[in-house]
Structure formats: structure tokens, C-alpha cells
Design a protein around this nucleic acid. Structure first.
Length: 470
RNA sequence: GGCGACGUAGCAAAGUGGUAAUGCAGCGGUCUGCAAAACCGCCAUUCGCCGGUCCGAUUCCGGCCGUCGCCUCCA
């Protein structure tokens, strides 16, 4: 069975058919780098990382390109407000984001192009649109002539007449139509600028993505992704300028993730997490409190197209889910390599794999895939309790890890330096308590356990010794 | 106002035209010196509301109510 994927362009789930049978060309709109990245950006990155990992699991070669918008109004405004150089500041935020993605276990994209490094292609793209009559220069700006594209509006389902009848478009005397959008903006004093046939200036927002996509992936791609807030006008405009330039359809599938939102404590309203609303949880602050797998689980738990509500309780719940997932990796206690329990375990691995694949084939139903993983967790625990060990047990755990890694779960909490510092002391206390238990001094032993528990350290006794969880 | 998404147990969240996965939380039990972990069992006669189609709908259609997103920069 082929992979079924929801296409925003057709508003239907369709089988994934790629230009080259074994290759997926995927371009994802990345971030505008003018501030610390928040977990909404992380969600989007993880959604497309998940898609990429699963496509690779299913045998595709994925060419995955993610851009950085590193020159635009907000970057310039922010840099000026904080006394920094816009280009340098953007580069710094971009580098920080890349390292955060690494901590989030997001696989590196094939390329991370930036607008400032694609200037030649952007200028060429713009010039060719002018030559073809799809764009026009006006006082140092260049605008895309929306009226020249009969298909304009096909992604967002907004007929042009209707858009023009709205009052949202600002009237600009330089534009032929209020719906026309800037491909090139004339420079203002103090702004970074590049020379062009129309004078010093910088690119408009939409053109950079089309230019970068074509530069790195060719005129036609399989998947174009991004947050659903980009659907209009950004992606609509990308389609317009790209298809007017090449005469070919730009992207086969348009894939949009839902927004991460949270409850505003002041208004008690659910709202999108966004820099402009100031209700931001940054990636750094999340990761100081929780393992990256916890955030991954939050994202995996719901459908990527649905809005995802975040709050502290959800983070705590998912931290407990992670504990359960980790429990399946505890070692065997028995050595039975055959018998009904071992056979049942092998069967569970197979059925988990089938359920997992079936769920993921269905428009990346990660919640369903996760459910299959949890069923495998139980099967492994049952087998351990039944004394299964040796090769079959190790094979089941390996199969489990394999599926978890397709979802991008590391299942190996990164030990923080704090944890490492404190470990020898906890171990001393465990030794002490073990001696007390041997001497049947249970009151003292329990005191040690209770006091540790008060400090957030949970002890678990087993025939193999005592483990602890922080 | 226009376009779109969604409304399933205490919480989160899958799913199907034939009587509802999974996880967290909770309850009972096994195990344990006691716990924890693990395991076993329980936990939605019901899927926002009202109609319609059907032998049968949570799942299809229509209406209503509610939540959210986009329509301006935004993952």
C-alpha cells in the first residue's frame, strides 16, 4: 500500500506519487530569524522531520531543504532596536536554531539556504518575471502582477475578485492592483541592500522561497511544507510566481502543520503561540526542564494538521509517558529463549510493526503509530515478567528501538551535568539503604527512600538491585 | 463578512457504516518487608446538538451551537 497524504491544494488525501519513484523532493519554509525560536517552530520542524524519517523508512531518498529568511522588515526593525547589524544578528539566530534542532533530534536537512545567499537567483527570477510580463518595476520596487495569473488563488480558495473587494489590502499608488505583491523592495536608509537593475534594494518575502526551492530542488518538487499560517498569502504567492515563471506546476503536495497554541493566563483564551503575541515558550527553556523526547511525544500524540494546545500539565503527562517507554528497555530478568512467551513476543513485534506502518501510511498518523509502540511496550514487559531473555528478548527490544527511532525518539535521556554531579551521592545512599534492608532495619531504609523521594529521586527495588529515577 | 479546520471518557488523543485504539490520571488485585516499577482487572451502552439517508451512523448528507486558524508579519 502506498503512503496517503493530505494535500492542501486539493483538500483531499491522495496517494504520494513522486516525480522520481524513489526520491522525494521536499521544501519546507523555515523561520524568520529575528528572535529566539519557540516550541511552535520546534513543532513544525519535528512534523517535517517525522515525515522525512518515515519516508526514508519506506525506502525513499529524501532531499529535504529548509530555508532561513534572514533579511526582512522584522529583522531590520529588531536589529535597529537592539543596536545590532541585521545580517549578523540573523546569522546568529539561525545558528542557534540549528543547534536547537540538533538537540531536538531533528535530522539535518540536505540544505539550509538563506535569502542573503540566494541573491543572484532571486534577481534572475525577478527579471525573468518582468520579461514575461508577470511583473513590473515601479520606483525601485518590483511587483508581481497578480492579474497575469489566471490560477491565482487556487491554493487558498480565494477568488481574486473577492480578495479585492475586501478592505484588507492597503492601497499603494505604485501598484497596479492592491493584490500585487513585492518581489523586490527599494532600500531605505540604514537597511541592508543589494544592487539590482532597479536600484539598491532587497528581496520581498515570497520570492526567496521560490528561488531557493528551484535552486536546490529544481523547477518541480514533490512536497512543499510549512505552517498553515503560511498558506495565504505566502504559499499562494509562491505558486503564482513559480508557475508563471516555469509554466509547470510547482509542488505536487502542499503540506501544512497546525499551530501550537496555548492558553493565555491573562485572558484565559486559547491562542497561537507567536512572537507578536509575546506568549512564547522558547525551545531553550523547554529543554532545560524536559528531555527532547518529551516534546517529541507531545507532537507525536496528535495529528500534525490539528492545532496542538500546550501547557505545563501536558508536558508533565508526556514526561510520564516517556518513563513508560523507557521502562521497556530495562534488561531481561530471565534466560528463556524459546517457549510460548518468546513466540508471543516475536509475534507482538511483527504486529506492532504492521500497525505502526499502517498508521503512518495513513497521512502520518503518529498517534496511531505511538499506540502500536505502547502495545509493544506491554508485550516486552509481559515477556520479561515471563522470564524471556537472551536473543529473542534483545531482538524485540531492538525492533522496538527501531520503530521508536522512525518517530525520532532517542529513548536515552541525555544526562544533564547536574544529574551526573549528583549521581555518586545517590549511589552512596542506595548502598547505605541496601545494607539497612539486609539488616532488616526497614524504618531507617524507608527514611532514606522517603527523603530521596522528597528531593525528586524515586527508588525502584528489584532482584537485580535498586534503580533510581530523577 | 469570506475561506478552512475541528468538537470522542477526568485529561490528551486515534479510529470505523455494524455497537469505541493508546497514554496519563483514578479504582481493585498480584508481586514486594513496605513501596516503586511491572503485570492482571475495572474505568465512554457512547462519540457537541437536531434532523435526513441506510437493515444499521460516532463514522455519509443538511442545519444549528461551540472552539480555532487564515484573510496583515507569523512555523
Amino acid at each position: 500500500m502506498s503512503i496517503q497524504l493530505y494535500n492542501s491544494l486539493t483538500r483531499r488525501v491522495e496517494p504520494l506519487e513522486t516525480i522520481d519513484p524513489h526520491v522525494v523532493r521536499m521544501y519546507v519554509c523555515g523561520v524568520t530569524v529575528y528572535d529566539d525560536a519557540h516550541i511552535g517552530h520546534a513543532m513544525s520542524a519535528i512534523v517535517f522531520d517525522l515525515i522525512r524519517r518515515y519516508l526514508e523508512f519506506r525506502g525513499y531518498e529524501v532531499r529535504h531543504v529548509v530555508n532561513f529568511t534572514d533579511v526582512d522588515d522584522k529583522i531590520i526593525a529588531r536589529a535597529h532596536a537592539t543596536g545590532r547589524d541585521p545580517v549578523q544578528m540573523a546569522a546568529q539566530y539561525a545558528d542557534e536554531f540549528l543547534s536547537q534542532l540538533q538537540r531536538l533530534n531533528v535530522l539535518p536537512a540536505s540544505a539550509y539556504p538563506r535569502a542573503t545567499q540566494t541573491m543572484g537567483e532571486i534577481l534572475d527570477f525577478t527579471q525573468r518575471l518582468i520579461d514575461a510580463g508577470h511583473a513590473y518595476a515601479a520606483e525601485g520596487d518590483v511587483y508581481f502582477r497578480v492579474a497575469s495569473d489566471p490560477d491565482y488563488g487556487k491554493l487558498s480558495g480565494r477568488p481574486l475578485e473577492e480578495m479585492l473587494s475586501g478592505t484588507r489590502f492597503e492601497v499603494d499608488p505604485r501598484k497596479e492592483s492592491p493584490a500585487d505583491f513585492a518581489l523586490w523592495k527599494a532600500t531605505k536608509p540604514g537597511e541592508p541592500s543589494w544592487s539590482s537593475p532597479w536600484g539598491q534594494g532587497r528581496p520581498g518575502w515570497h520570492i526567496e522561497c521560490s528561488a531557493m526551492s528551484m535552486k536546490h530542488l529544481g523547477a518541480q518538487i514533490d512536497i512543499h511544507g510549512g505552517g498553515n499560517d503560511l498558506l495565504f498569502p505566502h504559499h499562494e504567492n509562491e505558486i503564482a510566481q513559480s508557475e508563471c515563471l516555469t509554466g509547470k506546476s510547482f509542488a505536487r503536495f502542499w503540506v501544512h502543520n497546525g499551530m501550537l497554541q496555548l492558553v493565555n493566563p491573562a485572558t484565559r483564551l486559547v491562542e497561537k503561540m507567536s512572537k507578536s503575541l509575546g506568549n512564547v515558550v522558547t525551545i531553550d527553556s523547554f529543554l532545560t526542564q524536559y528531555d527532547a523526547d518529551v516534546f517529541r511525544l507531545i507532537v507525536l500524540g496528535s495529528y500534525y494538521r490539528s492545532p496542538l494546545t500546550y501547557n505545563a500539565d501536558i508536558a508533565a503527562d508526556n514526561a510520564r509517558k516517556l518513563d513508560r517507554l523507557l521502562g521497556a528497555l530495562l534488561p531481561a530478568v530471565g534466560i528463556a529463549e524459546d517457549g510460548p512467551a518468546a513466540a508471543a513476543l516475536a509475534h507482538s513485534v511483527e504486529s506492532a510493526r504492521a500497525d505502526f506502518t499502517g498508521a503512518m501510511d495513513n497521512d502520518f498518523n503518529s498517534a496511531g503509530a505511538l499506540a502500536a509502540l505502547f502495545e509493544l511496550v506491554r508485550a516486552i514487559n509481559v515477556a520479561r515478567d515471563a522470564g524471556v531473555g537472551g536473543v529473542p528478548f534483545a531482538a524485540a527490544q531492538a525492533g522496538y528501538r527501531d520503530l521508536a527511532s522512525v518517530l525520532g525518539l532517542r529513548l536515552s535521556p541525555q544526562p544533564s551535568s547536574k544529574r551526573q554531579d549528583v549521581a555518586p551521592f545517590i549511589e552512596v545512599l542506595i548502598e547505605l539503604r541496601t545494607s539497612l534492608r539486609k539488616a532488616k532495619q526497614f524504618e531507617l531504609a524507608d527514611l532514606v527512600r522517603t527523603r530521596l523521594s522528597d528531593l525528586g529521586v524515586t527508588l525502584e527495588d528489584s532482584p537485580q538491585g535498586t534503580r533510581y529515577k530523577l
